[in-house]
Write a protein that binds this DNA or RNA. Sequence first.
DNA 1: GTGAAAGCGCTAACAC
DNA 2: GTGTTAGCGCTTTCAC
Lengths: 336, 336
Amino acid sequence: MKVTISDVARLAGVSTATVSHTINNTRYVSGDTKKKVYHAIDQLGYTPDASARSFRTGKKKTIGFIVPDISNKFFGTIIESAENYLSAQGYHLIIANTKENMEREETNLRLLTAGLVDGLLIASTMDDFQRLDALIPAGFPVVLVDRTFGTQKYSSVSVSNFQPIYRSVCRLAARGKRRIGIIGGLPRLSTTKERIAAYRAAAADCGLVQDESLILYGDSMENSAPPCLDRLLERGCDSIVVCQGLMASVTIAYLRGKGIQPHRDLDLVSFVDYDTHAYEFYYDQVDRIIQPVEELGRAAGEQILFQVERPEMPLLERVLTSAYRPFPEAGESESA
Amino acid sequence: MKVTISDVARLAGVSTATVSHTINNTRYVSGDTKKKVYHAIDQLGYTPDASARSFRTGKKKTIGFIVPDISNKFFGTIIESAENYLSAQGYHLIIANTKENMEREETNLRLLTAGLVDGLLIASTMDDFQRLDALIPAGFPVVLVDRTFGTQKYSSVSVSNFQPIYRSVCRLAARGKRRIGIIGGLPRLSTTKERIAAYRAAAADCGLVQDESLILYGDSMENSAPPCLDRLLERGCDSIVVCQGLMASVTIAYLRGKGIQPHRDLDLVSFVDYDTHAYEFYYDQVDRIIQPVEELGRAAGEQILFQVERPEMPLLERVLTSAYRPFPEAGESESA
DNA sequence: GTGAAAGCGCTAACAC
DNA sequence: GTGTTAGCGCTTTCAC
């Protein structure tokens, strides 16, 4: 049978209050009493029941994370990094996967806000902020991760998307490229919008052709890049910007399969969702935009605990910066 | 303020029992009463408190998953697939990441078995079954995932490792390869042990040189393959088997960087942790061992719910089979 | 320095 | 067909 705090109290010859205070360090307990309590705990093999505790205190010591795609290494790494921080602070992480499906996100929001978690990290797939907001109880701690909305209602942690795209397009133009194609992610996402806006701005500023047919959208899943690539090649692009890591790695492989070599045959700018030595083997000869993925996860963890533990703290919109690493031309060195 | 079941009962003019039975469909309630109850719920915006409920019933509707590396796509996909099944059954998934660290696994076991979850999926990094077993309370529902121990104490879901390795080594031998190198994962894991055993058996059966220096171990993290590869090349291997997907993809990229082309220069057998069209671009010219990753996740989900919801069910050790897809020689067709 | 006891929100046995 | 109520295991106020 289950061992409860009263069993411990009885065996130790003290009250349940004392046992509770002893294990939680929440008021003074004499050394002698402590000893008796711990001894009883050992003898009975007592473990405090987490759900009774969270029921009583209202704190679950658990954060929920609504993600669009766990199997995507970008989110896998963010999750890892957030979990790492949260577990060090004594919190657990509940994962809910939406597969970029808005209904699934709604369901998960409803479930997770119903007393299951203390706060929520959301990398939302919603097109409409209202739709998201409507499901969040007033005052519920939320941090938007990676994907934001143009409102100040919740804290957010994201990555600057404008600058690296703008820079990379300018650089392509400077190299003499005139027909720069771009493959974005889902059009409804803030990340995609910002990236496409940066592309448009740079194209205009550099005096490039404004050809809307060079702007295509994938769905960030693995198989969405090749058809876009085929169309861009048809349309005579001399360079391509791929706005998302998974699609980018598929792009490189797909082009290689067609005998098209990056840099030699076609200039490529590619988002990279993680930064490791190993992946440099894939990404040579490609201009890379490297997102600070681990920092993003950690920052998300920090922010949500701020919200949860210090509700008086102001909202914070934190924007991390990606590194832009153009493939070095002869005589150039790397830049961040 | 928090709206409770009594608020609803009061407004609807019924008892809390009726409200509870109404929302849970747990005894007959007249249509009329139902209407009143739901109306009151809507008016007050009532949501049942999940932690009160699980405290009362003892069911958390939550499964824990202890994983060695969330950011590895192999586990990412297993998690996705398990979560998919579990959420459809009304369960949540708590993730704990160990980064292949045994102490972290111990900590997580202690935390998760203390009334937080109804059952536990474990892809253990332990070297010793006792060490794992000691932390699991008697009768606690557990399913071992991917990595097993030679005991019948818990249900398990894993992948057959022996046969595909054995077959692939034989095939290399048949192609005239004499010095076949192999890179395994962490030596303590069951998966690694089985794969290396299969390699040894096949090498012996095919009359190959038994050179222990051709057996190397990585740690399944990204950067562990290259040093192993360097050593195997030094030692004059004419073919290499890589026992883990992440290391395998790095292997291909690394060799390419050295100007070594699979098949033409060196035969390669490679575990692939997922099966998608996209990744075929990477894996052409390589003999692939494709693990049924999604099935593994789903099966893990099914098994743990069996344990949780039908404790009388017998233990089950389920072994899924990998597909072996040799790179087709001229005139050959694919095989599974 | 410690104890007694209320009560968190819900479910379910028992009663009618 | 519905109501009353005990009590899950814990924390915490109030009391001494």
